[in-house]
Nucleic acid binder design. Structure first.
Lengths: 229, 229
DNA sequence: TTCGACTTGTAAGTGTCTTGTAAGTCTCGC
DNA sequence: GCGAGACTTACAAGACACTTACAAGTCGAA
């Protein structure tokens, strides 16, 4: 789950984003409307979090622009208590929820999960492939019916594969989904990670395998289905 | 048990909430309809307590909105003696019980317990897992058939686990269930608490164990059932 | 009201798991 | 056979969880 957090108050942005990362989200922080639009066009986000008091443009001005390029992606607006009118306007302009500043981070997390759980959202779905099942709501994994312990990153990687099983996923796409732009890792990191996931899958008797396409990326495959291996 | 207490009279709110906390409830107090809706969306409450004389909106206006987002959660209305009509309207609009001001806190507590005991409510249920049994009505715990003494917080934590045995519970969820938003504790508090509960469970021969999922949360497990340990 | 026992959160130290880096090996395709 | 890309292994830093000790707060009994 990757979020774009549009907030110009540096201190607030730092604190909040740290908590969100702890909660398992990949978070990009931008401080201006320009950067926000740019990032929104460049990466796939699952949720936008928009603070309304931006320096270079009115936040509500930005909202329709974001919605235009990412019509499906939910937007959560943060606004000060006295800006009640803005809140109404925001909901009309296409935001999916709002939050009154100051807010507790747990509250923000609750809202994010809520919008993701809505019909068509990324949460509340059970991803199944081969004998592997991933419950997106509570992030639990079962292989052949037994619960399995994967670390946070390992789960995140496997989730990407399960969401696009049997479709080719480029290394770039994986990197974008797993790492925010502040924490870019060496290309090797993804290789090491896939190695760990492969090992765990194999050790625990999963019927699915991660195949490499040299120079292109990876594909998730069900080896039982077509009698391989 | 977490309550949202919607009351604009600060002094009354302070007194009542203190008594409710003493009685073992986690209590959030808000003074306006806006804050109430906001909190109701952000956290899981077991009961709402709604005072009808709010400054920014008619309390009865608020009731259906709360009921819409939390259809299962009971609502107890507090109203002045002369507002009899309101009481009738309240019950029609979806409140589960009402209380005439001024009221004794003991009465409020009795009403809360009463609505929680109704079919589908959180009380009146016996939670059993492994050789551990928790009687929600009188909050008594038995391990392997013998009564066991757990402190209030320890019981509250164990109750959360018993209510969702074998399902993953995030640290955030635990924090939300155990602490109201005024009394946020350090993350370590939950770790210390689980440590104490684990110790007591082990010392008293419980067959259940609290397992940690690093970076995610905890799960309650019955170690006898699947022949572990 | 005072005292002691118990509860509960904080702080600090320790241990363990996770995760990225680095470096070496392997393998595929030319 | 060569080189780029992928795989594997080992390691270290950091994050996270566990444990213990302590202090403040709470509660009940004398």
């Amino acid at each position: 789950m990757r979020l774009l957090y549009i907030e110009d108050n540096e201190k607030l942005a730092l604190n909040t984003s740290a908590s969100l990362r702890k909660a398992g989200f990949v978070v990009d922080v931008v401080a201006t409307a320009g950067d926000a639009l740019h990032a929104a066009k460049s990466f796939d986000y699952d949720v936008f979090i928009l603070d309304l008091g931006l320096p270079d443009r009115d936040g509500l001005d930005l909202l329709p622009q974001i919605k235009q390029s990412n019509p499906q992606t939910p937007v959560i607006i943060c606004t000060a208590r006295d800006a009640l009118e803005d809140r109404i306007k925001g909901l009309n302009t296409g935001s999916d929820d709002y939050l009154i500043k100051p807010f507790a981070v747990t509250e923000l997390i609750a809202r994010i999960n809520a919008v993701l759980r809505r019909p068509g959202g990324a949460l509340g779905v059970t991803l199944t492939f081969g004998n592997v099942t991933f419950e997106t709501t509570d992030r639990t994994l079962t292989i052949g019916g037994v619960a399995s312990a994967f670390s946070k990153r390992e789960l995140a990687l496997l989730e990407i594969f399960l969401r696009r099983s049997e479709r080719v996923i480029t290394k770039d796409a994986i990197e974008n989904a797993l790492y925010s732009f502040d924490e870019a890792a060496t290309p090797n990191a993804i290789e090491v990670l896939t190695h760990r996931v492969r090992k765990k899958l194999a050790d625990q008797g999963a019927t699915i395998e991660i195949h490499n396409l040299r120079g292109i990326g990876y594909v998730l495959h069900d080896c039982k289905k077509d009698g391989e291996t």
